[in-house]
Amino acid sequence: MFWDRFSPERDIPSQEGKVIVVTGGNAGIGKETILQLCKHSPKKVFLATRNEAKAKEAIASINSTLSKPADIEFVKLNLSNLALAAAAAEEITSSTDRIDLLFLNAGIMNQPPGKTDDGLDLQLGTNHVGHFLFTNKLLPVLKQTVTKYNPDVRVVSTASNGHTFAPAFETMISTEKLSAQGQWTSYGASKAANILFAAELAKRHPELTSVSLHPGMIQTDLYVTTTSNSFFLRNLLRFFGPILYHDVAYGALTQLWAATVDKSKLQQGGFYVPVGQLESKNKYAVDADMQKRLWDWTEAELKQRGY
């Protein structure tokens, strides 16, 4: 079992002095990631998420299990609104000159067709474009950290094997076509985009280490919409869920490993599956042309909206 080879409590090195940002850290694998890292004494954690009440509950829950309370600060982040995503990044950069680890962990799944506040496909706009803008606003501090504090700065993007639902690239970058394809296709496009983004970020900013990952089939709040909308899936998962799904602690393992393993064991821009296994032939992780085209398209969409 991988637990024998990678144990967060045993194998994560000291995080002393480090500043960590986690999007969507109020529940699920984001919360578990914060908990495990806080056992190793980081200087500061920014928990960036939409719901303040849930974030504060998570912070209290995490600190209740630690021998010494960690410095965890809530930052309001709404990835489906570009102005609010930018504002969250600016709030963070105004209060720290250092970010050692950035976990792009937040996301929505299998949402009914819709648009973000800025007119983008809801799932692609939230899971990819919102994170793209948020990350780019943090880049000056990430890069300053490399030169001033720590040469090993990492950006870890939580994608999914849901990328297999993604449509042709030309559909992915057409809001109207993508939204018309249905919620699973939209979700798949957003997860393919996470992999493409991580790979292109690694090329454009090689001083940072950027990887993406599939956390596994994890029973988290992401499945609430799926099960509530489908009688069949609700009952299927009631019987087979215990066999199909891992728990949240397992789900956090790959991103904890990617954030803390010796840097020499990571492939820049690589896509990893549980637990810590490189999927070297993933088509989105190896398609340099598609990576560049998505980056250029995203920049153009943001520029069109004033960012």
Rank of each mutant, 00 (worst) to 15 (best):
T145C: 12
P242S: 12
K31T: 03
H40N: 15
D296K: 07
E279L: 13
Q181F: 04
M217I: 08
N51W: 06
S230D: 09
G24P: 06
A252G: 07
T185Q: 07
S14A: 14
T96W: 13
N51P: 12
P206K: 12
K263S: 15
V224R: 14
H128R: 04
Q144P: 05
L222R: 08
F103R: 00
L102P: 01
L120P: 00
T220D: 11
R5M: 08
A55G: 14
D287G: 11
K148P: 02
S264D: 15
L37W: 11
S174L: 03
G30Q: 07
D262E: 14
L237W: 08
E91A: 12
K115I: 06
I173R: 02
P206N: 09
D247V: 07
K191Y: 07
R305A: 06
W295T: 12
K137L: 14
R293F: 10
S179L: 04
G17P: 00
R5Y: 10
S94D: 08
L120S: 00
L122N: 07
A258W: 06
D100R: 03
L84E: 14
A168P: 00
T126W: 02
L278F: 11
R204L: 12
T164D: 05
W297H: 14
F240L: 15
Y272A: 09
P140S: 11
L236I: 11
E32W: 03
D121G: 04
H246P: 01
